[in-house]
Design a binder for these strands. Structure first.
Length: 269
DNA sequence: CAGATATGACAAC
DNA sequence: TTGTCCTATCTGG
């Protein structure tokens, strides 16, 4: 379930398990064999999440960079190591624990210049204290692209994924197709604050919940709202079902190659 | 057991 | 915009 909150959770988890320890790393599948050799037996100094990217910083300025993509998954547990099952790209162990990684888009070892390049291409991460929402707004206000696409653009907002983008637009009452240049400074600040609060809650809970306001009993009965991902949502993956606020059928569409969901009544335009 | 599906990103048209 | 890649899991027959 890789939106930014998941990556920040993983960074904290991996820090707890392995930071300060010497770890063994290998690649049973073989596709990360060369990279594993570079960090095997080194000390993990610290972990870091930046948007949807996870970094494990090792001694001697080597960093393991992981991007889960759509399918990537981590698992961890207590030693002994379980026998490798399926496509196991990367395996790490040390300090009494093991970590398994399957199906990532990226799993590579980077030196400092490459890490700098990565940071430079990422936008503002609402979960990081160094984020600057005004810098992101500068890109939004000068763009004709739909605000939905801008939220998902990792060089604008790092870490926002499909669920957060759809849900935060619903909560803002903003049509997903609204061009960036039509988003006011106040509107952006409000949406940013909302997104940051939702994502922080996502880190704490390990799931995406966006339905917090009280509804009428009739609204509560309208439809189940717990998505497969385990969280409570207003519009995400609820096409054809009644809007939890007004009862209008939730619409589904495609924009910038991503699935779009919105309520035409609550998000006019 | 085949086929569809999944919260992502990138290259190529 | 379309195609492609990464892998596991859920669905229907």
């Amino acid at each position: 379930m890789p939106e930014g909150h998941t990556i920040h959770r993983l960074a904290a988890r991996h820090r707890e398990l392995f930071a300060g320890r010497v770890v063994a790393v290998d690649s049973p599948q073989g596709r990360f064999a060369a990279g594993a050799t570079l960090i095997d037996g080194r000390r993990l100094i610290d972990t870091e999440a930046y948007g949807k990217h996870l970094l494990h910083h090792f001694a001697d300025e080597l960093s393991l960079h992981i991007h889960l993509g759509l399918y990537g998954k981590f698992a961890d547990g207590e030693l002994p190591l379980p026998p490798p099952v399926g496509q196991l790209r990367m395996r790490m162990s040390g300090g009494g624990h093991w970590l398994e990684l399957r199906g990532p888009t990226a799993c590579e070892v980077l030196e400092p210049p490459a890490v700098a390049v990565l940071r430079a291409r990422l936008g503002q991460d609402p979960l990081r204290d160094d984020a600057d929402p005004l810098f992101a707004y500068g890109k939004v206000r000068s763009s004709t692209k739909p605000v939905f696409a801008l939220l998902l653009d990792q060089s604008v907002v790092a870490g926002c994924g499909l669920i957060y983008a759809n849900e935060v637009l619903f909560r803002a009452g903003l049509a997903p197709t609204t061009p960036g240049r039509f988003v006011t400074a106040a509107g952006w600040q409000e949406m940013w604050d909302d997104l940051r609060a939702l994502m922080k809650e996502g880190v704490a809970r390990g799931r995406i919940d966006t339905v917090h306001t009280a509804h009428t009993p009739e609204a509560m009965r309208r439809a189940p709202r717990v998505d497969r991902h385990g969280g409570e949502v207003y519009v995400y993956r609820r096409p054809g079902q009644p809007c939890l606020v007004c009862g209008t059928a939730v619409q589904r569409g495609s924009l910038a190659g991503r699935n779009l969901y919105w309520c035409p009544t609550c998000q006019p335009g």
